[in-house]
Amino acid sequence: MWTFLIRRLLQSIIVLIGVTLISFISLQMGGDPTYLFVSENASVEEIQRAREALGFDRPLPVQYLSYVWNALHGDFGNSLSYRQPAMGVVLEAMPATIELTFFSLVLAIGLSIPLGIFAALNRGRPVDGGIMTLAMLGQSIPNFWMGIMMILYFGLYLGWFPISGHVPFLEPLFAGEFSTAFRNLPQSMYYMVLPALAVGTYTLARNARLIRSSMLEVLGQDYVRTARSKGISETRVVMHHAMRNAWLPVVTMIGLEFGFLLGGVVVVETVFSYPGIGRLVFNAINQRDIPVVQASVILLAGIFILLNLIVDLIYARLDPRVKL
């Protein structure tokens, strides 16, 4: 177990170094990066001063090492539009994004499991065909368009859900104001229903298909037939015998999907004017606020790597055959 943990940790560190390298290279790709940090009207002297201040006049390897060192300390420079440390700005927006990503994951997984099982148990019937057709469609819809359609129908036409805004849950929770946090929770979820569904549609559709095919495979196995022949109720066979093994590919997918959801959140947040990292990145793109874009991307990639590590550990725990 410890060898596996250390090996995976080392791998994650290598990947993180790679992430900083890619991020550094991306900065250099457009030529002299100084121009990304100064205003368009800056004079030659101002540009030179900025170049020296930002260290872009030094050799590339030195620049990279200094970039990594600063990144390790969370220093991505000052935001060009907020005039304060970029990472601070990103971290302020982080709780809202985490709330939305987790909520969409919970919704997607929570809905895909019964749908996938139901389709598998009704294999070949119209209800199976219907669920699978919807799933195929769900995998073809851009999440931001889904968001727009939900705003039009559920928000504006039916008026069931709010189309923008956010009630914080994690923020008061982190601040130790537990009563406020839990008082906010129902409202927080209510405001997140539409964006979370928009973000999670693809994951929901994909997992429903995956769970269905995984269940069908498991239901055809000898040990399931044995369980049935022993007279165990169908519910117990499905929930106890089949589900345990059908879970494995799903857990792997959850790890992969989380990163995908994080990427999706970036786009969907802008549709719902949701005050998370996505909207921050969108505004930063429009204002060419490079430090904020870099800090956001690195932070999200870091979270993604950490989650993948956790998923690997859960996977190893669920399936003892996975060598630790």
């Binding site: 991306s26 995908f260 990427g263 793109i285 060419r288 874009v293 990639a301 790597i305």
Partner: peptide
């Protein structure tokens, strides 16, 4: 290790 869309954003912004 990167969510792909983030990687694309990072490069296209520059």
């Amino acid at each position: 290790a990167f969510p792909f869309i983030l990687l694309a954003i990072m490069f296209l912004v520059v």
